[in-house]
Design a protein around this nucleic acid. Sequence first.
DNA 1: CGTATATAGTTGACTCTGTCAATTAACTGC
DNA 2: GCAGTTAATTGACAGAGTCAACTATATACG
Lengths: 303, 303
Amino acid sequence: MEDAIAAVRLFNRFYTRRVGALNQRFLGTELSLPEARLMFEIIHAERPLAAVELQKLLDMDAGYLSRVLSRFEARGWIVRAVGDGDARRRTIAATGAGRAIFDVVDKRQRDEVTQMLRSLAQAQQSDLVAALGTARTLLDPAPGRDYLIRPWRTGDLGLLAARQAILYREEYDWGLGLESNVAETAANFLKNFREGRDGGWIAEVAGAMAGSVLLTDEGEGLSRLRLLYVEPMARGRGIGEALVQRCLTFAREAGFTAMTLWTHAVLTSARRIYAAHGFEITETWTHDEFGPEVESEMWLAKL
Amino acid sequence: MEDAIAAVRLFNRFYTRRVGALNQRFLGTELSLPEARLMFEIIHAERPLAAVELQKLLDMDAGYLSRVLSRFEARGWIVRAVGDGDARRRTIAATGAGRAIFDVVDKRQRDEVTQMLRSLAQAQQSDLVAALGTARTLLDPAPGRDYLIRPWRTGDLGLLAARQAILYREEYDWGLGLESNVAETAANFLKNFREGRDGGWIAEVAGAMAGSVLLTDEGEGLSRLRLLYVEPMARGRGIGEALVQRCLTFAREAGFTAMTLWTHAVLTSARRIYAAHGFEITETWTHDEFGPEVESEMWLAKL
DNA sequence: CGTATATAGTTGACTCTGTCAATTAACTGC
DNA sequence: GCAGTTAATTGACAGAGTCAACTATATACG
């Protein structure tokens, strides 16, 4: 905990300076930082918002907001329309002139960021995206709901093996046995991978890995689902379901006639998904390969 | 690149709001945000600094700084001493009273961060530390020099396999063959790991993985160094050297009489380290297991 | 040595940011 | 219809931050 606090504060200091540096660049443009933030929200809103909504969105003082809006209106950047049933509220919409002004600032800011990223190689840029995404997802108390499922690419297998080793240790105290097993499964997947017969899919939230699943060809029309998992921070939005669905679709299209999988009794939410898709238990036993004694299960579904 | 720019700007907006929220909490304390930042630098400086140095460090306006410093002096929080040869410069040092005032604000700020982290599990906290560390290291044009070398722990093997697969693809266009090879080596390390006979070490910069090396027992007094690598962002500060040194020390203490390793001719900086530690080439051949044709080498050192 | 130029620091004048409390007008619940 | 709440505005004010002018000292150079 101490380390984490120190790291966050260090980053805060770093980023305060960094943001400060970025904000100075607003100089010479027509909008200051708070003005630009406001204009951003006005322009990107799905519908014209009232002042209160902007105030809550940006955590701005009502009085200050009122004055800035008056200034915007005087300059012809926004129009305030009475409407929507409540005569106190006036919905705010950007005019063409307002958009034009914002575009200039927006472009300027974009160029700043571009400049900042220019020195980074491709791989480092994706590292940065993943790192910022992870940080945001962890710090944001109300994160976005959207995820993305994509085929696996270089590095994903190692990463998902790492995540699962950490996760299962944290949640069930499974140790080296589990980590070794996962690593071996991942290594074999890479070693035997045949396009069209095997498949791997990664769920992403904000550019960071949020879950995964693999499908391997076991011969004679049998496929096997492997290494399904969803990050704790990304649970409860149907990612596991979507990953399994992706696997089943792929297997059907590839002509597999059945799918098997190995799981454990404690993994209740995964088991629920399997059961919902026609999987049935074919075998159960207990082992202590992972450390604590666990109840192991083989499941099978006809496709 | 587009994605990266969008991700950075999204994070900027998120963090600007977050920092804004944190800064409001300075209210009710004796120091405002800029004052606290200034006091932080004064207190944590290795030697008393002059105003110009603080000005550059914090990117502050000289006039504003001058006024804030006068205020601090009037309140007895700092002393300005003439000295250091240049009669224009006055070095600034915090008094006991200044430190006491800062400690209160510092504690308040610490509590805020603690509050923010309270909802995160242990594993999520280390994720956050690593993510913020990675982001900072990538964005900071003049990053710190210090690294840390520690024994491997859960998740490291998968992560280092992922990093090497990405890195070697980026730098040498090595593909699935390399990724598979690295994954298998990592999996075998986990499978056969014996405390005291095998070893793995991770270099960390700002909480994020910056390099690694493994040592395995090959039988009959022979040890083998494997999977040495250093992140591009962390190169040029002797991390590779330190990792190899760690390996050699471990091998000698464990009673190994020789150490072998497999490398490739293109990996020149690694080869330099091996040569400097008494390794010599015993065998060379070419292969295209990784995609492009490469020159492979076995090295050996007596211990 | 003396002069030009640069640097450290201060000060005055000013604008923008942000807070707080008071006020008006409209809405909501009962 | 009335009490209490909410949206928005306004006045007063303090702090943040910029800019230009100015003093004092240091450095470069013929």
